[in-house]
């Protein structure tokens, strides 16, 4: 029952996160862009519960609005990459042979390539911005899922229950989705929870390089990167967005683990 509780707790966190993202404009005490240069780097006060940043903006409001960008970047990156990676990985692993080699070489080429250069190329050609950040992260991200799925399917291909399903006339799509997918789900779920956390952090790294969301749009990653120089004089600038990321990652982890346990029991 402890797991059940953890799963619900995780779901509650994620729901809260989505609600925050949707309701940011009504619950935030200030506008995230409202500056007050006189009131910079303030610590906690009644007016600003989490203090203010270098431009005198309310940190709490920026975190609430930042949830939008971070949820959007995290979710869309993971979903797109996961779908793409699953299709390509399973095709590659299931059929093997030349197609497998071709697809895996493509994956290798993309993975051997530092994502940073790809991101620069992207933003240089298309201009920086939220959609291009997501696009760049997906382009780098799907390969991981593809390799994981392919590796698992390679192992599953030799299992008796798969042979049995094939012998009963199950087509590839049927075998993969009905028989292999349940076994694939646990590692994929975990990989996705990491992937989502990774995407939120990667958006920050892109911001760190000046290629992320454009100011003054707040995102947790860009808040972390902007607050970094003030670690010694105003640690609250990084602590709170950092906590927001941590709570989100916690939620994702609990849900991932909980779902895994659930699937495990069903599978037996």
């Amino acid at each position: 029952m402890a797991n059940r509780f953890a799963l619900f707790f995780g779901l509650a966190i994620l729901l809260l996160l989505v609600a925050t993202a949707l309701l940011a404009s009504t619950i935030a005490p200030h506008s995230p862009a409202e500056q007050n240069l006189e009131q910079d780097l303030l610590s906690t006060s009644k007016e600003h519960p989490l203090g203010t940043d270098k431009l005198g903006r309310d940190v709490l409001s920026r975190i609430l609005y930042g949830a939008r960008v971070s949820v959007l970047v995290g979710l869309s990156t993971v979903i797109i990459s996961l779908l793409l990676g699953f299709v390509i990985g399973s095709v590659s692993g299931y059929f093997g042979g030349f197609l497998d080699q071709l697809l895996m070489r493509l994956v290798d080429v993309l993975m051997a390539f530092p994502g940073m250069l790809l991101a620069i190329a992207f933003t240089a050609v298309l201009g920086p911005g939220l959609h291009h950040v997501i696009l760049a992260l997906c382009l780098i991200g799907w390969t991981g899922y593809a390799r994981l799925v392919r590796g698992e399917i390679l192992a599953l291909r030799e299992k008796e229950f798969v042979h049995a399903a094939q012998a009963l006339g199950g087509g590839p799509a049927r075998v993969i989705t009905l028989h292999m997918l349940p076994n694939l789900l646990p590692p994929l779920l975990i990989q996705s929870t990491f992937g989502m956390a990774g995407a939120i952090i990667a958006e920050g790294s892109l911001s760190f390089l000046g290629l992320g969301v454009q100011p003054p749009t707040p995102s947790w990653g860009s808040m972390l990167s902007e607050g970094r120089q003030f670690l010694l004089v105003a640690p609250h600038l990084t602590t709170y967005p950092g906590l927001a990321v941590m709570i989100t990652v916690l939620g994702l982890n609990l849900v991932g683990d909980g779902l895994r346990d659930l699937l495990e029991k069903k599978g037996k």
């Binding site: 862009a33 500056q35 240069l37 270098k54 431009l55 620069i120 933003t123 240089a124 201009g127 920086p128 390089l209 000046g210 290629l211 454009q214 100011p215 003054p216 902007e226």
Partner: peptide, 24 residues
């Protein structure tokens, strides 16, 4: 970046919208 954000704010007060683009 911060300078750009402050300029954006100041110019919005006279009715000019700056679209800030940061580049490598």
């Amino acid at each position: 970046r911060r300078m750009a954000e402050a300029l954006k704010q100041q110019l919005s007060e006279v009715g000019i919208e700056l679209e800030v683009h940061t580049f490598e």
